[in-house]
């Protein structure tokens, strides 16, 4: 779905943000991109919908080079939810906000209404549909931004830090929601610092540091590699941290899941 070949990117001010990135993301995959602030995560995903174009190398979305199509065209395929919802909200009501892009994409009245209702329900925003997005809390605004993108049903959904400001049950909803998108064949790319969220979702994890990809694999491998994580300024999942602290007791060290931890400990500790 997304194919990146030898991508380099330098900002006009001379900052080299991406260095020789090669990457393939298949249709229906769920990918988490992690790494410290300034590692190049956001710069990378901005190449997915042509907001940025490579300084060197190429980015292909669904087989099409991003250099050869407009952002507006790519946006229909690749929906973006930014880190700060305030950068993408501007309408007077939540409902108008969700309808806005649909109008731009030329949806007719009836399907437009259906999609708005669908998106409002999906993200639990029905009761706020007449409210101003700016009267809502940060977490709620984030959901409005998500609803407004999902309404036009893009093939790829890119979310920059979707868990910021979300409480635990909303994160759980988001997790189920991403799984649901995945099963519909949608590709989901999430940029996040939230190691607990990632360890619960267990996606493919791409770790970035200094503009490069330093690891790419399953969560169980990447999130338990202390050396790599330190290099990328990512902390261990709390469950992993427990086992790392009692290495001498010879438990497996690649545990990220709470329930796996429970079973392992039960086996050794006994119990009822």
């Amino acid at each position: 779905m997304i194919e990146i070949k030898d991508l380099w990117f330098t900002y006009p001010n001379g900052v080299e943000a991406l260095r020789n990135i090669s990457l393939e993301i298949r249709k229906g995959e769920f990918v988490a991109i992690m790494g410290q602030n300034g590692a190049g995560k956001t710069t990378l995903i901005k190449h997915f919908n042509g907001l940025l174009k490579p300084s060197k190398g190429a980015v292909l979305v669904d087989g099409v080079n991003t250099e050869s199509v407009s952002v507006a065209k790519l946006a229909r395929k690749v929906g973006f939810i930014f880190q700060n919802p305030d950068n993408q909200l501007f309408c007077e009501t939540v409902e108008d906000e969700i309808a806005f892009a649909l109008k731009n994409f030329g949806f007719k009245e009836a399907p437009l209404k259906r999609r708005v209702t669908w998106a409002l329900n999906l993200l639990g925003l029905m009761e706020y549909r007449k409210a101003s997005p700016f009267m809502l809390s940060g977490g709620e605004r984030k959901r409005v931004a998500l609803a407004s993108v999902l309404a036009w049903d893009p093939q790829v959904v890119v979310m920059d830090e979707p868990t910021i400001g979300q409480d635990y049950s909303q994160k759980e909803k988001l997790r189920q929601f991403i799984i649901q998108l995945n099963t519909q064949g949608k590709t989901v790319v999430v940029v996040t610092h939230d190691v607990e969220f990632v360890s619960e979702c267990n996606p493919r994890v791409i770790l970035m540091s200094g503009g490069r990809i330093v690891a790419d694999g399953i969560g169980k491998d990447v999130l338990t590699d202390v050396e790599l994580l330190t290099q990328a300024s990512v902390v261990l999942p709390q469950v992993t941290e427990i086992f790392m602290g009692i290495k001498d007791l010879e438990f497996p060290l690649d545990v990220i899941d709470l329930y796996e931890a429970k079973e392992l400990l039960l086996k050794r500790l006994g119990g009822k």
């Binding site: 610092h193 190691v195 300024s233 990512v234 902390v235």
Partner: peptide
């Protein structure tokens, strides 16, 4: 919210 985990710590 906007900090990486090491920065947050």
């Amino acid at each position: 919210s906007f900090l990486d985990p090491v920065g947050a710590k």
